[in-house]
């Protein structure tokens, strides 16, 4: 498996498939007992977690596992201090990140007073503040409403366009279908399949093996198979385009026959 800069990757699979274990290998929290994990050519067994984390930022699923500071400002600056950034740079980076996450008005508030979604955003900001080259998100969409998911999606795409690699570990089939990233499907600690989301998520056999559920669009289009639609449609936009084409075609045909 290889992750390049600018990649957008989703690791999917059933509970206990080894998704989080794989994610933890990427910044050296877990070291491989067999095989090798390298980050920019450096073997993870030879580098400390702190050194690797500078490049590979992991955002954990539950923000309650990392929030501890008195203010949001300190929370976001914590990692920067650990990595030895200059005080001036820290102030600037913290401000910028909070601005990007729409958290600027909370700088002096305790992170514990914020709502669940806001805490999740603070946790994300606390990692993005040091601008890691590779960003790992563990279940980023859990407990987020649609609007926040949409915002997260835009944010990931923006990071991608800046050449950063984003890897997310998730169960959220619909979210993956909307983003259409590369998908790594895992089961029982092994990689089952790799490929673009629309190929993987519309494949009945693979979906079954990884105990996932097909995205709604894929379900719809597998039932519309007889009308000459492709089967690998997973996102609403492409579905809309295909259906509109078909409708136009039908309209034209109806007009011609009358």
């Amino acid at each position: 498996m290889k992750i390049d800069s600018g990649d957008f990757l989703a690791i999917m699979g059933e509970n206990g498939a080894g998704k989080t274990t794989l994610a933890k290998q990427l910044n050296g929290l877990l070291k491989p007992t067999l095989g090798r994990v390298t980050v920019d050519g450096d073997d993870t067994t030879k580098k400390s977690v702190a050194q690797l984390s500078r490049k590979v930022g992991i955002v954990f699923q539950n923000p309650d596992h990392l929030l501890f500071s008195e203010t949001v400002r300190e929370e976001v600056g914590f990692a920067l201090k650990n990595f030895g950034f200059e005080p001036g740079v820290i102030v600037k980076q913290v401000e910028r990140t909070l601005e990007a996450f729409d958290l600027a008005h909370y700088v002096d508030i305790s992170p514990f007073l914020l709502s669940g979604g806001e805490r999740k955003r603070v946790a994300l900001a606390a990692v993005l503040a040091w601008e890691p080259d590779y960003l790992i998100l563990d279940e980023p969409t859990i407990g987020q409403d649609y609007q926040q998911k949409e915002r997260l999606r835009n944010f990931i795409l923006q990071l991608n366009s800046q050449g950063k690699a984003v890897v997310m570990v998730t169960h959220d089939v619909e979210f993956v279908a909307e983003c259409n990233p590369k998908v790594v499907l895992m089961s029982n600690g092994k990689v089952l399949a790799q490929g673009q989301a629309d190929e993987i998520l519309s494949d009945d056999g693979l979906i079954e093996k990884a105990s996932l559920v097909k995205p709604q669009m894929a379900k719809l289009f597998s039932q519309l198979d007889g009308f000459g639609f492709p089967r690998d449609v997973v996102d609403v936009h492409r579905a809309k385009m295909l259906l509109e084409e078909k409708l136009l075609e039908v309209k034209v045909r109806v007009a011609q026959s009358s």
Partner: peptide, 16 residues
């Protein structure tokens, strides 16, 4: 288990 996750999360933020 919680403690392990917290330790992992903070080490990922450069805590040594």
């Amino acid at each position: 288990v919680d403690a392990q996750t917290v330790v992992d999360a903070q080490r990922s933020r450069g805590l040594e």
